[in-house]
Write a protein that binds this DNA or RNA. Structure first.
Lengths: 197, 197
DNA sequence: CCTACCGATCGGTAGG
DNA sequence: CCTACCGATCGGTAGG
C-alpha cells in the first residue's frame, strides 16, 4: 500500500504490516514477538532473520510515516495558493493518510514514545519541526488577513489532533465515506460550527 | 486534587496518583509494579496491601474520570442555554479537566484498552453513550438553526480529539495560560479559522 | 511493610 | 526457517 508499485511485498514488508496492525490494536509494549510471529505464520526466532529487533520494527514504521508527511509539507510550502487553501490541502492529506494507511499512521502517532535513542530524539525533532512549519503557514495567513487572529500553535494542535481521532471512525459500522468525512472536517475546521447567515 | 477536601490523601490515593503519572509517561504495559513501588517509596510486594492488582489501578483511574465527565454532562443537559452555549460549556469543561488533571484524564483516554472484562465493555459503553449525548446536543442545535448543517458525529470527534491533544501543550515551556488556551480553542471550534469580516 | 520466592513470559541467540 | 534454550523481568503470593 505504501510501497512502490511493481515490487512484490517481501517477508519483511509483511512483518512490518502485521506489526503495525498489532501495535495499533494492543500497543507496542503489550505486543510480544511471539504474538507477532504467530500472526505472520512463523516461529518467533525466525523473525530475526528479517529484522534485528522489536525496536527496529517501530523505527521503520515511525520514520516511514514521518518521511511521507515531510515530503508532502515541502510540496505544499513550494506550491501556490493562499493560506486557507494550503491548510485545506494539508488537512485533506492528513485525513487521507489516516483513512488509507491508518495502522501505520496511528502507531507512529501514539507509540513513538517507545523509540530508543538516538531515534527518539530524532523523531521528536522532526515532529516539532513539522508543527512549526504548519504554524508558519497559519501565521502567514494571519498577516495577510486571510485568517482571523488566533494563536497559530493552538490551531495546529487542534487540527492535528482532530484528524488523529479518525480511527474511532474507521472501524465504526457506519463506515462513513472518506470523501464525505473530509468535507465535513474541512468545513468545521475552517468555518466553525456557528451558523453565520 | 480530585478528592473531596478535608480528607487526607491515603496511601492508596498516593499510589493511584503516582500510577497515573507513570502510566501517562511510559504507558500502562511498559510500567512495572517495581517501577511504581519505587516511585511510591516502598517495595513492590507492599503495593498489594493497598491494591488488589495492576489492573485494579487502571480501573480506578478510568472510572473516576468517566464518572466526572458523566456528571458534568448531566448538569449541562439539565441546564438552560442554547446549543452553542452548551457546547462551549462542555468544551471549557474538557479543557479544564485536561489542564488541571491531565495525567488521570490522559491515561483514561489512551490506556483504557488495557482494561479487562467486564470493565472494558462497561467503559466502552459509557464512552459511546457520552458521545451520543454530545452529538444529540449538536443535532438539536442544527434543528433549531443555531448550528450549520454538518455531521454531528464528525463534529463530536473533532472536538473531543482536539481537546485531548492539550498534553503537548501542558508540558511546553511556553506554559500557555489556561484561560487563554480555552478562549483560543472556543473561537476556533465555534467560528473556524477563516476571517469573515 | 519487608524478605524471599513462584511460575510465566519476555526479547533474543546458537546452531543447524 | 526451526528446535532448543538463555538470562532477565514480569505480576503476584506466603509468611511473618
Amino acid at each position: 500500500m505504501v510501497k512502490s508499485p511493481r515490487r512484490k511485498a517481501s517477508k519483511k514488508d509483511i512483518i512490518l504490516q502485521k506489526a503495525a496492525a498489532m501495535f495499533r490494536e494492543k500497543g507496542f509494549a503489550a505486543t510480544s514477538m511471539r504474538d507477532l510471529a504467530e500472526s505472520v505464520g512463523i516461529e518467533a526466532a525466525s523473525l530475526y532473520n528479517h529484522i534485528r529487533s522489536k525496536n527496529e520494527i517501530l523505527e521503520a514504521i515511525c520514520f516511514n510515516v514521518a518521511n511521507r508527511f515531510n515530503e508532502n509539507m515541502e510540496a505544499i510550502e513550494a506550491g501556490n495558493g493562499n493560506s486557507i487553501q494550503k491548510i485545506e490541502t494539508l488537512l485533506r492529506f492528513h485525513i487521507r493518510q489516516m483513512v488509507e494507511n491508518y495502522e501505520e499512521v496511528y502507531v507512529s502517532d501514539r507509540e513513538w514514545k517507545h523509540l530508543e535513542e538516538p531515534y527518539l530524539s530524532n523523531f521528536q525533532n522532526q515532529r516539532r519541526n513539522y508543527r512549526k512549519r504548519f504554524a508558519a503557514i497559519i501565521e502567514n495567513g494571519i498577516q495577510k488577513n486571510e485568517i482571523k487572529k488566533i494563536d497559530a500553535s493552538t490551531a495546529v494542535l487542534i487540527i492535528l489532533h482532530a484528524v488523529s481521532g479518525i480511527e474511532s471512525w474507521h472501524r465504526s459500522k457506519e463506515k462513513i465515506n472518506g470523501e464525505e468525512l473530509e468535507n465535513n472536517m474541512v468545513v468545521i475546521m475552517t468555518d466553525g460550527l456557528r451558523k453565520t447567515i
